[in-house]
């Protein structure tokens, strides 16, 4: 289960960021500080997001799932950030279609094949706009973990 492995040091309920690069830097720094990712992680994230953007519009809720090559990751993990003010990301699969993102699920992936089920669970959470709206509305990381736990129990 994802919720069991969430680390509250990697959950931001009211992140103040000026643009998408600022989000990647701040959330990525937490993954480095908590020893999930290597020092090269943030730079690699920024580069990859520019080339292969990860913004998604899920029934009107903007989400981004930034991630990068496994070589920049030490141990797998997920960081979650609810943004104080939405910032624009480019939509996945597009050149320049913007999506106003208010929740970021940053993935630290080590072995995608081995973690297929976890990736699928994260996608199932992201594809549920009701869960996303609830995540946006709560005030603490414990509440976010609780919402994810509830969703996972329905999968």
């Amino acid at each position: 289960m994802i919720w069991e492995e969430l680390n509250s040091a990697l959950i931001f309920t009211d992140l103040d960021a000026t643009n998408n690069a600022d989000v990647l830097e701040k959330v990525g720094a937490a993954l480095i500080k908590e020893d999930y990712a290597k020092d090269t992680y943030v730079e690699a994230l920024l580069k990859r997001e520019a080339e292969f953007p990860t913004g998604l519009d899920v029934d009107g809720v903007g989400v981004a799932i930034p991630h990068t090559d496994v070589s920049h990751v030490k141990v797998p993990g997920v960081a979650i950030a609810v943004l104080k003010n939405p910032v624009d990301f480019i939509q996945m699969g597009s050149d320049d279609d913007k999506v106003s993102v208010s929740i970021v699920f940053m993935l630290a992936v080590v072995n995608p094949q081995a973690h297929l089920e976890k990736l699928q669970r994260i996608l199932a959470i992201i594809q549920d706009s009701e869960v996303l709206k609830n995540i946006k509305s709560v005030k603490s990381s414990d509440e976010i973990i609780g919402l994810i736990k509830n969703k996972e129990n329905t999968l």
């Binding site: 990859r48 292969f52 991630h67 094949q113």
Partner: peptide
């Protein structure tokens, strides 16, 4: 195929 063969193509392939 995806950008890094990390997350999204794993999901799509499955």
């Amino acid at each position: 195929a995806c950008g890094g063969a990390v997350a999204t193509s794993t999901i799509a392939a499955n």
